[in-house]
Design a protein around this nucleic acid. Structure first.
Lengths: 147, 147
DNA sequence: TTAAGTGCAAACCGTTTGCATGGAT
DNA sequence: ATCCATGCAAACGGTTTGCACTTAA
């Protein structure tokens, strides 16, 4: 039984990529907080605490690489910057987002019944559907009260 | 019976805004193609054919204003630029997007059964849900064949 | 007449890229 | 020795903003 980090190292090796200290630090950051959505700049700030010499472009390149390998998922919530989250292999795609319009908090939820809808739309339109994204926008419990 | 353009002029007037030739041209462009999703730059290019002196910043300011008034809907498909579509008041929100990952084509569809899901999620999480967005990503009929 | 609106150019900001250096295999 | 990877700084592209001029009401 080897840890998630070991698996990732192998995934990288298979593509002739190395698990450098910078990459390891970034992967660890996401493994430590499996539920967070971090922007490149947030990652940069966190990592710099341990690796002060790291460059922002290394962060961008690493995030892109990890997203290509399917280890991270790149999300665009439209605030002019992308965010990344750990892509749990066992969770499949049954995980979507609930976004607070006031404080920006993001929660996850698992919807049911999207598959049938997906099939119906595919049949109707001739599209081959490969992925989907469902988002609900609103006010979280805290922000609803403060209104 | 006054046209849609007249209504929009009144909506603007209510907020002490004017319907200038530039704004009228932009509104007309969207009214002429109710099903398209246009970026600021595409709008700029189209309008410049009739109003060569128009500035790109005017386009941006107008799009923002029209979105604020609910006349346009701002969409972010994550390609680094926003797109705008006419927001038909009668269509409500039952209109979602199907995006081709190969050619970027965007189609609309109307899903059913999202309301129940929305209520269930609201109950579970304490969120007050105000809006939602459902997107399917895949290959359109043309691109599927060319593969 | 006067506040809203415009065009232009510069600023902005997240992201990408070119390049010389550094390090793992 | 080779080639992947890094840090830095410059470039990039969509968007926003400051400002003097213009114009619709």
């Amino acid at each position: 039984m080897k840890g998630r980090l070991g698996e990732i190292k192998e995934q990288l090796a298979r593509r002739e990529h190395r698990l450098t200290p910078q990459r390891e630090a970034i992967v660890r950051l996401f493994l430590e907080r499996p539920d967070e959505h971090l922007s490149a700049d947030e990652v940069f700030t966190h990592i710099r605490a341990r690796l002060p010499e790291i460059g922002l472009s290394t962060v961008y390149r690493t995030l892109e690489l990890l997203a290509e390998l399917g280890i991270l998922q790149k999300l665009d919530f439209g605030a002019g910057r992308s965010q990344y989250e750990l892509s749990l292999p066992d969770a499949g795609h049954l995980h979507h987002h609930l976004i607070c319009l006031r404080c920006g908090k993001i929660r996850e939820f698992q919807p049911d019944g999207l598959e049938e809808l997906e099939e119906a739309v595919a049949r109707e339109t001739g599209f081959e559907i490969l992925d989907h994204s469902l988002r609900f926008y609103g006010l979280c419990e805290d922000c609803r009260d403060e209104r």
